[in-house]
């Protein structure tokens, strides 16, 4: 009798669990790419987690220990770079402390926005169908969790593509790949392990060092920053890019203010920096990781364009800049 009851319960449980799992699969399968992106947008803001992130690019592997919480609208993060100089980044709201253990120094910076470490994606501004297509390609496991893989495919060579693996339970991005020309992964950021949980102890976010007697650098990199109207425009930007912000910044040791124009296609941002020429250098291109830059001189101003986009894009934008009056 007892055995029979156990059997019935087990059968009921199997039916229920099977139904739940099947329902979940159906729900996941029915979700549109936009549904997933919306879920991701919520998840990167609201999810608290800690884990290990691995970044692979240009043949180099870097590992980061990361903790992220969101409490009462305040983002708190801790990132420890496990290689090199062991840089530790502690974020409490807008204030960011970069701790350099080798130098026993702390650099204080300010981030004037609510973006989080993993807000790689996009706002509703992105115009899927115009510059990119997005589709769900696969379901597989990442960091031990089931994930849906989204492929974001650019329509032209002016931008990179992305593959993003989203946790099916929370929508959190567990893995991202930046895809270059001919589908080459240029950069790979992946959680090797992750623990998603609501209650992360405050002590987990504390610095690993007692920094009271260390040297503190509190001078911000940019002393003044405000929105301005600029007379610099680009005649021929790649399709879909438009100005989203124009800032004027005064940098330490700089005699003249720097104009910073930010272009976006809804997914990626490209920065245009305009400053009076102070040296004899004419033009050049460079790259750091998957970011490219191009610098040239126009009307006695140095115009430098930087972004995580192909070289052709920064070059075209730089060369098409001109003063409108």
């Amino acid at each position: 009798m007892l055995t029979h009851m156990h059997t019935n319960k087990a059968a009921a449980c199997l039916v229920f669990c099977g139904f739940f799992t099947a329902s979940q699969v159906l729900a996941d399968a029915a979700a549109t790419p936009q549904d997933w992106i919306d879920r991701m947008g919520n998840a990167v803001q609201a999810t608290s987690y800690e884990g290990t992130v691995v970044r692979v690019r240009e043949g180099k592997v870097e590992t980061f220990k990361v903790v992220h919480t969101m409490t009462d609208g305040i983002v708190r993060e801790k990132v420890i770079i496990q290689d090199g100089n062991g840089l530790e980044i502690i974020r409490n709201g807008n204030e960011v402390h970069c701790i350099l253990p080798d130098r026993e120094s702390v650099l204080v910076e300010e981030w004037n926005n609510q973006s989080t470490l993993f807000s790689t994606l996009p706002s509703s501004d992105i115009r899927f169908g115009s510059e990119y297509d997005v589709l769900i390609k696969d379901f597989e496991r990442v960091a031990g969790r089931k994930a849906a893989m989204l492929a974001i495919l650019p329509h032209d060579n002016y931008r990179y593509g992305y593959r993003i693996w989203l946790d099916t339970e929370t929508g959190f991005p567990l893995q991202t790949q930046l895809i270059g020309e001919d589908n080459n992964p240029l950069e790979h950021v992946k959680f090797a392990d992750i623990s998603i949980q609501e209650n992360i102890l405050a002590s987990t976010l504390a610095p690993s060092y007692s920094t009271d007697n260390w040297k503190w650098y509190t001078e911000p990199r940019q002393t003044v920053k405000h929105e301005v109207e600029s007379d610099w425009i680009a005649d021929k930007v790649p399709p879909g890019f438009r100005v989203v912000s124009t800032l004027q910044k005064t940098l330490p040791d700089a005699a003249d203010p720097l104009t910073h124009i930010i272009y976006s296609d809804g997914l990626v941002t490209v920065s245009v920096f305009v400053a009076p020429v102070t040296d004899e250098k004419k033009a050049g291109r460079s790259s750091v990781g998957a970011s490219n830059s191009y610098s040239t001189v126009i009307d006695d101003y140095r115009v430098t364009v930087v972004g995580q986009v192909p070289q052709i894009t920064v070059e075209q934008i730089a060369k098409s800049m001109r003063r409108s009056r």
Binding site: L87, I89, L100, E109, I262, G289
Partner: peptide, 28 residues
């Protein structure tokens, strides 16, 4: 300097961390 500034306004984990790495290196 430009990479640092670009990173501050970027929404990419990688770009922002790289920006801070460059700044930290500069500080070193």
């Amino acid at each position: 300097q430009y990479l640092i500034l670009h990173g501050y306004d970027s929404n990419s984990f990688s770009t922002r961390v790289t920006s801070l790495q460059i700044r930290a290196d500069e500080l070193s």
